[in-house]
């Protein structure tokens, strides 16, 4: 699913955020990327999501070489991938329903199909009763579940989560991790970046540890 070959990333300065990273994540895996703050976890996910371009090396995601992807092809590439962030990134002026439906609206899906799919996914994450609420009225755990619903409504082949439980209490974090596990069970490859080593070890054997932009250990 994901292959990186000798990838480096420099942000302006001479100190690379990532240097000489090579790794392979097969389809259907549930992988953690861990390491201390500033290790380069977010940068790695950004490269995979084509938010940033690598300074060096090749990145192939689901058969697409995104080191050389055309700017205009990026939106279409992203529709195959779901993303979840620590700060949820929901639109506060839209309802839960509209936040999730948004992903389908922008690709021109018919209203009837949008409705059916949004109901399905909200039901699946257990938020159907809150579909008309606005994000600020929800708990952090609920907001993250909305974000996850939005990320998976297109049945992505890959789900990237950057510190998805960073803002949540331990019990809510647990709930979110279980949800991600369930998504993985449906066949979606999942990559989670977290500085929480203990949680990573609890939920997966596949852990890539970064430090100073380099791979320290890769237990895949």
């Amino acid at each position: 699913m994901i292959q990186l070959h000798q990838v480096s990333k420099l942000y302006g300065s001479n100190i690379p955020a990532l240097s000489d990273i090579s790794l392979t994540i097969p389809k259907g895996e549930f992988v953690f990327v861990t390491g201390p703050s500033g290790a380069g976890k977010t940068t790695l996910l950004k490269l995979i999501f084509s938010s940033e371009r690598p300074s060096q090396g090749e990145i192939v995601v689901d058969g697409v070489n995104i080191a050389r992807i055309k700017q205009s092809a990026i939106p279409y590439f992203r529709r195959k991938i779901g993303v979840v962030f620590q700060d949820f990134k929901l639109i506060n002026s839209k309802t839960v329903y509209d936040n999730v439906a948004f992903t389908l609206d922008i690709v021109g899906t018919q209203r009837k199909i949008v409705k059916k799919k949004v109901w399905q996914v909200l039901k699946w994450v257990g938020l159907l009763p809150k579909k008309d609420s606005y994000p600020p009225c929800l708990s952090g755990g609920e907001q993250q579940r909305v974000a996850i619903a939005r990320a998976i409504i297109n049945n992505p082949v890959l789900l990237l989560a950057d510190e998805p439980t960073g803002n949540l209490d331990p019990d809510l974090a647990l709930e979110i991790m279980k949800l991600l596990k369930a998504i993985n069970a449906r066949g979606t490859t999942i990559v989670i970046a977290t500085h929480n080593q203990a949680m990573a070890q609890r939920f997966s054997d596949n852990i890539i540890t970064l430090a100073h932009g380099q791979i320290q250990t890769n237990s895949q």
């Binding site: 205009s72 939106p75 279409y76 590439f77 992203r78 529709r79 993303v83 990134k89 929901l90 639109i91 948004f102 992903t103 922008i106 690709v107 939005r150």
Partner: peptide, 16 residues
């Protein structure tokens, strides 16, 4: 800008 950012995240084309 936040909404635009999210539109980009979920794969909205530049034209859209």
């Amino acid at each position: 800008r936040e909404e635009i950012e999210i539109m980009k995240l979920v794969g909205a084309t530049s034209l859209f």
